[in-house]
Simulated assay, not measured.
Amino acid sequence: MERGELEALLSPRVLTAVDAEARPETPADVLARSTALRREGFSPEESAAILTQAALRRRARAKFGEFADRMLFTRAGLEQATRLEAAARHAARFRDSGAALVADLGCGLGGDALAMAALGLRVLAVERDEVTAVLAQYNLAPFPEATVRVEDAEAVDLDGVDAVWLDPARRTAGHDGTRRVAAADYSPSLAFADEVAARRPTGVKLSPAHDREAIPEDAEAQWVSDRGDVVELALWRGGLQRDGVRRAALVLGPVGAAELTAPADAEDEPVGPLGDHVHEPDGAVIRARLLGDVARTTGTHPVGPGIAYLSGDGPAASPFLTSFAVDAVLPFDRQRIRKELRARGIGRLEIKKRGVDLDPARFRKELGLSGDGEAVLVVTRTADRRVALLCRR
């Protein structure tokens, strides 16, 4: 967002229109509303600002719930913003540590600062991008405990600050969690984060794909997933880490939260035979390398060497696993799989894979699906072969 767009957005007339605007759902809605806004006397820039914020608020509800309806966003800022439930847990950790004033260095649109202020903490929110800082100030306006400052995070005077939260921006692609992210990819730098952690209790939000070899030995590393999507790695140091915890997987879902903790990476269980169920671990458990602990507590075992699917007889009552009943164990042969699916009338097929080079979308087309039935196909490796497991959730 450029300064001119910001100025157009922040006029009282436009802000009132943003609050009144329904969230457009289709391109036709956008076109119709743009025309209507022009007729009401809004300029093209103002109309664009109103409709953009309406669309972003609609998207932001997944992260901020009802809070989104009074916030302002940029596309990039919303993508990077911490989800409200995760931010609330960050804030609770600072509160429980006894901190009174927390510096949020690299506050972005203010999601974490909002959660901290809502718990009664005083917050110094620092953002070096002036436009983003103005939006953060607007978002934090209901909380007098929060102060927003335009400044480079590495230049902030921390005198009087009890604890620090850092959410470094990623310099390069990879924050979607699919590519390993190195220390050099962040700004402020992780060297700066190390310096801060030596002086203050510190939490740092990183990509879930952060290089594990770069995790400090004294840090509690907590991977967080939200409804199956691994969204962050939080490193806690300087007294914010829990005693005896160096690895944690926090799973947030529609019915609550569950967490698995350990003093170190868990040792894997030996590979075992395929049972009548196969279980898919939550991504946070895999990232935290706690699969062995889940296997031991559920009486399951890996289906193959280095494969993050577990198997056993019966469903697993665990918040860290999704269970599938196995209806057929097939060789990984397209003709055989196609024949089995047609015989069962499977027209809707979800394809999952681990340890096998396969493009699920292309493979689905090759199968020529037809029928009213639905199933899940798990393609993977056992100790001695590639298999396709035809399953039901």
Rank of each mutant, 00 (worst) to 15 (best):
M1T: 07
E2H: 06
G4F: 04
E5Q: 09
L6D: 03
E7Y: 06
P12D: 15
L15I: 07
E21H: 00
E25K: 13
A36S: 06
G41T: 09
E46C: 02
A48L: 04
T52R: 13
T52G: 01
A54N: 08
A55D: 01
L56T: 06
L56R: 00
L56S: 02
R58G: 10
F67P: 05
A68F: 04
A68R: 05
R70Q: 08
M71V: 00
M71P: 00
M71S: 01
R75F: 06
Q80R: 08
A81P: 00
T82I: 07
R83P: 01
A88M: 12
R89E: 14
R89P: 01
A92S: 11
F94V: 03
R95H: 13
D96T: 11
D96W: 11
G98M: 10
V102F: 13
A103R: 12
G108R: 14
G111A: 15
A117G: 07
V123Q: 12
A125P: 01
V134P: 00
A136W: 11
Y138S: 06
T147R: 14
V150N: 07
V156G: 01
L158F: 07
D159W: 13
V161A: 07
L166S: 03
L166P: 11
L166K: 02
D167G: 05
R170P: 01
R171D: 03
T172L: 08
A173T: 11
D176G: 09
G177E: 14
G177F: 06
G177K: 04
A182W: 07
A183C: 01
S189D: 05
L190C: 00
L190I: 00
F192Y: 09
E195A: 12
A197V: 00
R200A: 08
T202F: 02
G203Y: 07
V204A: 00
K205G: 02
S207D: 03
A209L: 00
R212Y: 00
R212K: 00
I215T: 05
E220T: 01
A221H: 05
G228D: 15
E232I: 05
A234F: 14
W236L: 10
W236S: 08
R237E: 12
G238I: 09
L240H: 11
Q241Y: 09
A248E: 15
A249S: 09
L250F: 14
V251C: 14
L252F: 14
V255Q: 15
G256I: 13
A257K: 08
L260K: 08
A264F: 10
A266M: 09
D268R: 15
E269K: 12
G272L: 09
E280Q: 15
E280G: 04
I286N: 08
R289C: 04
R289Y: 10
L290K: 05
L290W: 12
L291S: 06
G292H: 07
T298V: 07
G299T: 13
T300W: 08
T300D: 12
G306A: 03
A317D: 15
F320G: 04
P331K: 03
F332M: 09
D333H: 12
I337D: 14
L341A: 10
G345I: 04
G345N: 09
I346L: 02
I346M: 05
V356P: 04
V356R: 06
L358A: 02
D359H: 13
A361D: 14
L369E: 08
D372V: 08
L377W: 10
T380C: 10
A383M: 07
R385Y: 10
V387P: 01
C391H: 12
R393P: 04
